[in-house]
Amino acid sequence: MLTYLVRRVALMIPILLLVSILAFSLIHLVPGDPATVILGPEAPRETVERMRKDLGLDRPLPVQYAAWLSAAVRGNLGRSLVDRQPVAGLIIQRLPATLELAFLTFLFAMLVAVPVGVYTAARRGGAADMAGSVLALAGQSIPSFWLGIMLMMLFALKLKWLPTSGYVPFWQSPKQNLMVMILPALATGAREAAVISRYTRASLLEVLRADFVRTARAKGVAEWIVVMRHALRNALIPVITASGLQVAALIGGLVITETIFTIPGFGRLIVDAIFQRDIPVIQGCVLFAAFMVMAVNLAVDLIYSLVDPRITLAGERG
C-alpha cells in the first residue's frame, strides 16, 4: 500500500507541474498588457508600472514562472490584488463552507441514488425501471442553477420554510447552518444523484448475473435478500470509484450554487476573483482545485482497494 501511495503521489507531481504552467499562463493569456487590462485603460502610467512590478511582469518569463512555482510549493500563492490578503489564506478561509456543502450534496445524492438504482435494477424492464431511467436522465439534464432558483422560490419565498441566504459556520449555529445548506445541497445533489443512480443500476445488473447470485437463488434465498445482502455489497464497489470521478463535476457545480445562495465558499471566491480580475486568486484557485481533484481520486483508489480484497494495488505483491 505504501509503495503504491508513493508511486501515485510521484505521478501526481508532473501533472501538478503542468497545471501550474496552465495556471501561471492565465495571466499571459489576457489580451494586451495584463496590468493595463486589470487596472483599466485610464490608470496612470506609474500605477500600471507598479502593478507590472507587483505581478513580476517586468522579469523574463522563465524567471517569473520559477519564482511563482517555488513560492507556490512553499504554500505561498501570492497576494490578492484587491485586498492584499495571501491567496492561500483566502482559500483556507473559504474551504470549510465548500467542504461542508460537498459533503451534504454527496450525502443527499447517495441517499437518493442507491435506493433508486437498486429498485430500478431489481425491476429491470418494468415501468419503474423506465420511470427511474427517465428521471435519472432528467436529473442529469436539469441545470443546477435553475433548480436552485426554483427550490429557493418554493421553499424560501413561497412556503418560507427555509432561508434564501444567511450562511453561518456550522460551529457557530448548527441549526441555522443546516437550514441554509439544505437547498444548495439539493440543487447540486440532484445531478449527482442522477449520475450515481445510473451507475448503481448498471453495476447491480452486472452483479445480479454473477454465479454466486444464481447459487443463492437456487438455494431458495428470498429475492430481496439476494439483492440487498449478496448483490448490493459487491455492486457498490465500482459505484465508489464512479462517484469519486464525479468530484470534478461536483466542484464545478458548487461554484454556481454558492453564487446563487451567497455561500462564502471556494466557488464564490473564484467567481468574485473573476469579476475583480484578481489574477493571483484565480491562479491559486485553479491550482488548488486540481490538487483537490487529484487528492480525492487518489483517496477513492485507496478506499477501493480496502473495500475490495480482490484488488491488488500496482506495486504490491499479490
Binding site: L18, L22, I256, V293
Partner: peptide
C-alpha cells in the same frame, strides 16, 4: 492536467 482542473473552473 487539463482534466484535473474541474471543467467549469
Amino acid at each position: 492536467a487539463l482534466q484535473a482542473v474541474p471543467f467549469l473552473i
